[in-house]
Structure formats: C-alpha cells, structure tokens
Design a protein around this nucleic acid. Structure first.
Lengths: 135, 135
DNA sequence: TATAAAACCTGTAGTAACTACAGGATCAAG
DNA sequence: CTTGATCCTGTAGTTACTACAGGTTTTATA
C-alpha cells in the first residue's frame, strides 16, 4: 500500500502535480500554499495534503480561475458548512466570464476570416487587410 | 470642409480614437507611434496621419494582435511592394491562435457546466465541485 | 488681463501570473 | 568524500497597460 505520510521535495512535488518548481514558490508567496516544513538545511518538505491542495489549484488554473478566485474557493473548501451554494455561484460567475470571452473571440475570428477572404480575392497592388484597417 | 491639416492634443486624440491618453504615451514609448511635434511648452501635437495610425493600432488591438504583431504589420504597411502575402500570413497565423483559444475556452465551458450540473443535483452535505476538483 | 481649473509633462511603480536568472548552500548517489 | 543535481533567496523581466506624484502649461472665465 502507499504510504499516506509520504513527503516530497519541491522538485518531486513539481513532477507529481505538473506545476513547475518556481511556480510552487510563487504560490507560496501569494498565500495559496502554506509554508511547508523545512529540512535541517532549509529545503521545503511537502506532505500529501499539500500535494492534494496543489493539484486542486492546478485544476482550477486549467479551468481559468484566477489566483484570487482560487483563494476564495479554497477558503470555502476549508470552512465546512453551507458553502456549496457559494462555490456554485463562484463557478457560475466564472462560467459567464468564459462565455463572454468565447463570444469576443468568435467575433474576432469572423473578422479575421473576412479579412483573409478579401485578401485572397485581391489582385490590386495594395493590401486589402491594411487598407481596411487603415481607414 | 474638414481641415486635413488639423492637429490634436493628446486628450483630443484620445477622444477621437478611443485610446486612453496614458495608453497613447505608452504606445510612443513602445515605438508604435512616432514622437509627435511639441508645443512651445512641451505638449504633444498630433497630426491627422498620426491619428489614422493610432486608429489602425486600436483596431488591431481589438482583433487581438499583440503589440509586436502590430509593429510588424505597420512595418509591412509602411514598406510598399510585395507585402500583401506577408500580411495575409500574419493574419492567418493570428487566426489560428484565436481558434486555439476558442477551443480551449469551450473545453473549460463544458467542464464548468458539468460541475454546476453536478452541484444542482446534489443533496449531500459536501460540495461536489470541491470534491471533484480536490481528488 | 488675471486667475483658476483643466489638461499636460516626466518618471516611476503597480497590475496578473508567472519565468528566469545570479550566486551560493544542501542533498543524494556512487 | 566528492560531485552533480537540486535547492535556497532575492530580484528583475514579461505584456499591455493603468495610476499616481509633483510640477508646468494651456484654456476658459470674469
């Protein structure tokens, strides 16, 4: 069986979680990760719990949550009780943001496509992309 | 008729182009805008040409081009000749980037929706969003 | 014309979320 | 016990702005 009391160096934690070593240090400075124990020589030593927390952070980052949103979610996760609704709300708000971004990017996409199309159909010496944007 | 030799103060240019005054100064520092003439007292005085250039920059930014991409496009626009193909290429590359971003965001969107759905269907005391992310 | 308010000037620092050193100490393997 | 890998701290760089502070100029009003 796996040892539930396993510990990790910063590099090992990095490998385990897929978060770069320097980024781990950054998360500590931000307050996302608690300061870990240290070895006699001052090297960081992480526990399983801290590894789990870091994995959570990584997943949230992949989903586009900001550091401060994650701070909020972790706070909610730490405080037991009537928090599910708040977590759902944070997530829903974030979903709205993501959907807005998608809308904006799609508009951009269409405009860029149009520009390229105009360029393809072009035979004059000037560049239609530049022309359109420069007027 | 409009005076083609009209000039603008920084604030007037900001109003005209929709680019904030401080941002105009920043674009100058970046080399996107040439240093304008100055009044006796040192205030910047912009010409119509510079206004047109700034509008171009603003449109490019709205389409998500980076400062350095815009520098490239402006360089191409300034050099006459066989540049249309290069402009099209820059634009196409940028379009790819935009489409990649859309793909990523849609994945995020779906995952966030799933999390929220799980939360809605939940009746246990713990929060399924936290649970899913924390494992 | 005198004054006051608005706009402008420079330079610097802050924002988000990292990334990348430099210069040195510690750890793990052989 | 040596050596190479990893780790330490602190600082600076990245992108595209934004926001001062402290002072000067311009413009509008009386």
């Amino acid at each position: 069986m796996t040892d539930l009391r396993a510990t990790y160096s910063r590099g090992q934690l990095a490998k385990l979680t897929g978060v770069k070593g320097e980024t781990i240090r950054y998360y500590e400075k931000c307050g996302l990760l608690d300061e870990p124990e240290r070895s006699g020589g001052g090297h960081r030593i992480y526990t399983e719990d801290q590894a789990a927390r870091l994995k959570f952070i990584r997943r949230c980052r992949e989903l586009g949550f900001s550091i401060s949103e994650i701070t909020g979610l972790l706070g909610l996760a730490d405080s037991k009780g009537q928090t599910c609704e708040q977590v759902r709300l944070t997530t829903a708000t974030h979903l709205d943001d993501v959907q807005d971004k998608i809308k904006d990017l799609k508009k951009m996409e269409q405009t860029l496509k149009d520009l390229i199309d105009q360029c393809m159909a072009n035979s004059s010496p000037s560049c239609p992309i530049i022309d359109v944007l420069f007027s």
